[in-house]
Nucleic acid binder design. Structure first.
Lengths: 348, 348
DNA sequence: CTGAAAGCGCTTACAG
DNA sequence: CTGAAAGCGCTTACAG
């Protein structure tokens, strides 16, 4: 079976022969590096030959020789997380415009996989790596990031960033968004607000906690025993969290799930199992604003993340890094938007 | 700025020097092609050197020389379509196990883009291409597919297939699934069922129509004027479609939206705008079973597509094609599963 | 302005 | 069993 063997592809050599010139001139023309270096007549012949023979450059050869690749690596923790496809689309579309293409990986929130994929990306000489990191407490990820930086690999954190890494990033202003959500809940009369957080020590999650605390404290509200920690990946302790919240002597009137909308929807389901009605008995708000959030009953009050914009900005910044512009300590934080819907009611 | 310049990477040459042997032996060991050709002692030294110097093979060089790439191209019509992320995950996970990685593209249902991406994939010598094609009426896509086949590029259709292309594919048994959906509706008392279809001439959609017609005809039900065509991408004429259905003298009791669940949800919204209650006044069923389908009220009755399995099977078949096994006319059709929920009620 | 030549890091016959 | 050498398709100084 040699059916899979590609017909001999036309190369720069064939173009040179067809156009009756040297391969050097052909290369120059292809790469637009002929500023008067190639005679117009010759250039025209080359262009015609390229069209005639339907020439496609061999990018492996180009990358091997010049070190320049058109491939950008993208590692996300879970492509089926409703948050990512739109962000990925933003990255892809901008990448396409800039002449780059995306090699995509799903780390499944597993650092070992993330690390292996980074290695793969180095093997294919990817021009840069964009990472939405795993939950990581023990500093291995940070060490890997810095190793990459030292090796001169353009690296960018997206969504899951931490400024402490001293690496460029694109993400949300989680502090501000969370502050606004909490202020909103307070403004419609909720005084005892439970904050549900993913377990682990992600910076962006800590920022959400800080925003909540700021809003609560500056209005003299008690936050003691108000924070609950959820297994954000498998929701394995979600029933316990909900139980602890509804049985708390604090008598919470609202749950702000900083873990995201899908998580908030699961919380609503669990509340129903406990015969509690949302929003009448207790309010629930989320984070992200995914497609389903507006469709469920009651529709979910949440923070909208500009997912597509996040992706677009990420690729733009990656381009800056690749071009060697000074991106030292450069971080972009986009604003979230409060979307008030029906999952939390107004208390007099 | 030469910060982006990678430190000189360690190559096969460095390993040879470190292990005090030739680069040929190193290459043999790396590729597992040393069957007693390399002395155990030497092999051990090579392995140690690889570990010590943290060697990563340059896959561009390997691909250039041997023609073997680890990259598989994947082109989907819309990554934000709720159907695809899980399918992509299936492909990615299986690819990873097989030592391949995915370069992903979103054609945005635009054939010109699809074609450009195929060209890019050829440029990077991708080992194979998996495509969920665009809606395409004029045969350009089919022509491109055959050109690729002639050129010996491993090619596979996923989800959006058409057996007429004589190309391997992995998709759903749409005929059977649609037949079952229609039979189900008939079995619970619906006699006048409107079929909502995407415009265009996709094979898989035609199959859904065939399944519907078979079920209707074999139970002597009228299908005249029962089919409505929707702009499946932008839903631009969805209001008209719904209007035509509810104002039809046929007095339909159910709408089977073969365009998918997201479309069916939009139909439900539109019915509500017309003060019609689902399922009491009219039933609605969908296709795909995405995450949101179970969450809305009423929960959507639909056909579950095994998305992850579709992806996994696709990558498995791609591997067969790459390996040069006989895949002539090989198509895999997985079964859909009827999921009865509350969006259509039982009629006596 | 053009052409011959080196070399990117590999793989793979081939000679010893 | 090992090593020297050609060559994959490019890019890029460099000589003319």
């Amino acid at each position: 079976m040699d059916e899979n063997k590609a017909n001999k592809r036309v190369g720069i050599k064939d173009i040179a022969k067809e156009a009756n010139t040297s391969i050097a001139s052909v290369s120059l023309v292809i790469n637009g590096k002929d500023n008067g270096k190639v005679a117009d007549k010759v250039k025209k012949r080359i262009l015609e030959a390229i069209k005639k023979l339907n020439y496609q450059p061999n990018l492996n050869a180009r990358t091997l020789k010049s070190g320049d690749s058109v491939l950008i690596g993208l590692i996300v923790p879970s492509i089926t997380n409703h948050f990512y496809p739109e962000l990925i689309k933003g990255i892809m579309q901008r990448a396409d415009e800039l002449g780059y293409y995306i090699v995509i990986f799903d780390s499944e929130n597993d650092f070992a996989k993330e690390e292996a994929y980074v290695r793969t990306l180095r093997s294919i000489s990817a021009k840069g790596i964009i990472i939405a990191g795993v939950y990581d407490d023990d500093g291995r990820e940070e060490r890997m990031f810095h190793e990459l930086k030292e090796q001169g690999v353009p690296l960018l954190q997206v969504d899951r960033f931490n400024p402490i890494h001293q690496l460029p990033y694109v993400g949300l202003d989680n502090y501000q968004a969370s502050y606004e959500m909490t202020k909103y809940l307070l403004s419609i009369g909720h005084e005892r607000i439970a904050l549900l957080m993913p377990q682990g020590k992600q910076y962006i999650i800590e920022e959400r906690r800080r925003g909540y605390e700021k809003a609560m404290k500056e209005t003299d509200h008690d936050i003691e025993d108000g924070i609950f920690y959820l297994d954000a990946i498998h929701f394995s302790n979600l029933d316990d969290c909900v139980k602890n919240i509804i049985e708390s002597p604090k008598r919470f009137t609202a749950i702000y799930d900083a873990n995201g909308d899908i998580s908030a929807i699961e919380v609503i389901k669990e509340l129903r199992k406990n015969d509690l009605i949302v929003p009448d008995d207790i309010g629930v708000t989320g984070f992200d604003d995914v497609y389903v959030s507006a469709l469920i009953k009651p529709a979910l009050t949440t923070i909208r993340q500009p997912k597509y914009e996040l992706g677009k900005n990420a690729m733009d910044l990656m381009k800056q890094i690749i071009d060697g512009n000074n991106t030292e300590n450069m971080g972009i934080q986009l604003k979230g938007q409060l979307i008030a819907r029906g999952s939390v009611s107004v208390i007099l």
